[in-house]
Design a binder for these strands. Sequence first.
DNA 1: GCGACAG
DNA 2: ATCTTGTCGC
Length: 224
Amino acid sequence: MKYLKLHTWNVDYKKAVEIQERLKKSIILKGSTKNCKLIAGADVSYTKGSEIFYASVVVFNLQTMERVEEVTASGKVDFPYIPGLLSFRESPILLKAFAKIKSEPDVIILDAQGIAHPRGIGLASHIGLLLDKSSIGCAKTRLIGEYNEVGGEAGCHSQLTVKGKIVGAVLRTRKNVKPVFVSPGHKIDLNTSIDLVLKTCRGYRLPEPVRQAHKLVKKTAKEA
DNA sequence: GCGACAG
DNA sequence: ATCTTGTCGC
């Protein structure tokens, strides 16, 4: 990807929250995914005690679900894990990985939240904004929001709401397996997000782009 | 003050 | 996220 600015997050908690509240205003919850060709999954991993982060991006052709491209990157961890501020910990290394991608994915899926976040701007939204791409958050657990039980069949989903507002969906991607938390990140709506997550699932709980990115980054971290 | 809390 | 073994279920 071109014209990518890498960020160093030399900020404290207060400054980070300010950045989120400013960036949040630019989030767009609709977008064209009709001519969507390429979809990218990304993930981050680190080995305890090493202080080093690894990130991966795996790009798929949405029509054929063939692997188009994959890259990895590594770097030093410079921000602690604080619920609600995951962006400041993982964005730098993710951007470094995305900078190596030669193809231009239309949509990005991350193992994180989109707008289902205390300030409406989770990691998936953050990355979507910085890269000016459509992005989807597909997290394994809840960060914020209330929801009702989800049906046991694949495809069943229920609303994830915060103060009465729908911010995402709790989606069963596989029969009798724990649901995932889907929320739009940027330049996409909730229904399209749910659609793409289901469309890219191949019999596993997590959509293939995220699953493959996870496998790749784990392998990379282990061999390092 | 207490509980909750993406990865 | 990471540290960890076996084990239950489709």
